[in-house]
Every structure is written in structure tokens, then in C-alpha cells.
């Protein structure tokens, strides 16, 4: 069985990374980390590898330094790493990102299962995996909490929907996005980390893909444009009321009562 896992490198955001005057995101100097949600996708793949044997390939699209994502994945137990890296891929939105991932996974081979994280911590759309499934013409299981009874032909999955848990039988190949807390990532192993350092990384550029039309990738292939980035509007900081226990309780009740009337 061959499993593809999609993992993204994201900036380790903290506060103050945005210029409050211009609203420009100060990406420079930001530490880059693996999107935490994707570690759970990798864990789900490694669980299958542990139980029935599988070759786990990790795909990451990003700048050259996204190679670190692959090294980290090797240290957890991934077998192969694919770095999807080309200037032409930059600035991609959900549509273009999922298209590029589809082209890359196809160029790398046939996979029985594709695993994604639930969302990223930067773009945070949680929509790339659904788009990728559609480009690949595959069924997609969202919010997966359990992968059971996996065979070469199909598997049983459990996933969340609003107010309900659904169990379904899905045939392979298919795409699964996993819930973070259901697949707690294992610790990297020192031994694998060391051997992973020497592992060859497969680099995919546009030349390696079937579709070589530049217009389909990156910013030109994107349907959306970020027109403006700005700090979140804030309710003007009000001076907090300081009234002591009883006074504060009265104040809160009057606000609740007031709101209740409207």
C-alpha cells in the first residue's frame, strides 16, 4: 500500500508579526514550522504502516526551506519526501494549490490513500484537501476520527458531522482529512532523525508535471486575490469598570438585563 501525506510549512505566528500601521505581514524572520494539524495526518499514515505495512510518502509545496518538513517527517517514520518547489507555484490560492498538489501526486505515482490535515494555521481555510479530492476525482472523508479495517480495496472510517458521528465504508483510492486530537503524533526518533538527514529528497518542479502551462499555477492559476490585509477591527479599548464584587455583579446584571430587553 502506498500512502501520500500532504504537509505544509507555516510561519510560527505570534503576536506583533504585522505592521500595525501598514497592515503588512512581517514574514521575514519568522520561524517556520510544520503545520501541527499535518503531524496528525502523518501519524494516521504511520499507524497504518505499523499495522499492515505501507510506504509513506510526504508531499510539501513551498520554498526550498520547506525541506525541513520532510526531514521532520523522516524522523517520525516517513519513507520518501517530495518537495514541490518552483517559482511558478508561488502565490497559489486554494484552487491553484490543490491543482498543483494533484499534478505532483500524479507525477510521483499511484497512491491508495491520500491523507491531509484538517487545516493550516496560516491560510486556515481547511479547503485544500476537499479541492484536491475533487481534482483527483476521489471521494473525500472530512473530520476523520478513526480509520478501521483498511484493506487494499476499501476501509471503514468514522468521522464527525454536526451533532452526529458517521461510520462509512469508502473504497480506495480516497482522500482523508483527519482530526488533530484523534491521531496524536508520535515523538520523532533519534535514529530515524539521523538516517533521515542523509535521505534523498525528490524535488518536483513544473517541468516534472504533466501540465506545464504556467497559467495554471501559482498566482496566475489562482481565482482569488487578496486585495488587502489589515489588523482585525477592535472594539475600542474601553476603560474597564472597577466596582468591587457587589457593584460589578450589579453592573453585569444590568447589561444582561438590558440586552435581554432588546
Amino acid at each position: 500500500m502506498k500512502i501520500a501525506v500532504c504537509m505544509k510549512q507555516v510561519p510560527a505566528v505570534s503576536e506583533g508579526n504585522m505592521d500595525p500601521e501598514t497592515g503588512v505581514l512581517l514574514r521575514a524572520g519568522l520561524e517556520a514550522i510544520v503545520n501541527v494539524y499535518d503531524l496528525s495526518a502523518l501519524e494516521a499514515a504511520l499507524k497504518i504502516k505499523d499495522s499492515r505495512g505501507a510506504s509513506v510518502h510526504v508531499f510539501t509545496m513551498g520554498p526550498a526551506k520547506a525541506e525541513n518538513v520532510l526531514r521532520e517527517a523522516f524522523a517520525m517514520g516517513a519513507d520518501e519526501g517530495w518537495l514541490i518547489c518552483d517559482k511558478a507555484f508561488a502565490g497559489a490560492d486554494v484552487l491553484a494549490t490543490s491543482y498543483t498538489l494533484m499534478q505532483s501526486i500524479r507525477a510521483a505515482g499511484d497512491y491508495d490513500l491520500i491523507l491531509c490535515g484538517k487545516q493550516t494555521t496560516d491560510g486556515d481555510t481547511a479547503q485544500v484537501s476537499g479541492g484536491l479530492a475533487r481534482w483527483m476525482n476521489l471521494p473525500h472523508v472530512n473530520w476523520t476520527t478513526e480509520i478501521m479495517d483498511i484493506s487494499d480495496a476499501d476501509m471503514k472510517v468514522r468521522y464527525s458531522m454536526e451533532n452526529r458521528m458517521v461510520t462509512a465504508s469508502v473504497s480506495l483510492p480516497c482522500l482523508v482529512s483527519v482530526e488533530k486530537d484523534s491521531f496524536v503524533p508520535r515523538m520523532p526518533s533519534l535514529k530515524l532523525k539521523i538516517s533521515g538527514k542523509k535521505k534523498e529528497i525528490h524535488v518536483l518542479t513544473m517541468e516534472d508535471l504533466e501540465d506545464k502551462d504556467k497559467e495554471h499555477y501559482g498566482l496566475s492559476g489562482s481565482a482569488t486575490r487578496v486585495r488587502k490585509i489589515f489588523p482585525p477591527p477592535r472594539t475600542k479599548q474601553q476603560e474597564p469598570v472597577t466596582l468591587g464584587g457587589a457593584g460589578a455583579a450589579e453592573y453585569i446584571l444590568s447589561q444582561l438585563g438590558h440586552a435581554n430587553l432588546s
Binding site: V13, M18, L25, V226, I229, F230, P232
Partner: peptide, 8 residues
């Protein structure tokens, strides 16, 4: 970015 930024 977890609500750090608004984008239009």
C-alpha cells in the same frame, strides 16, 4: 493566522 490578520 488564527485571527491575527483580516484579509479582503
Amino acid at each position: 493566522f488564527g485571527g491575527n490578520v483580516m484579509a479582503s
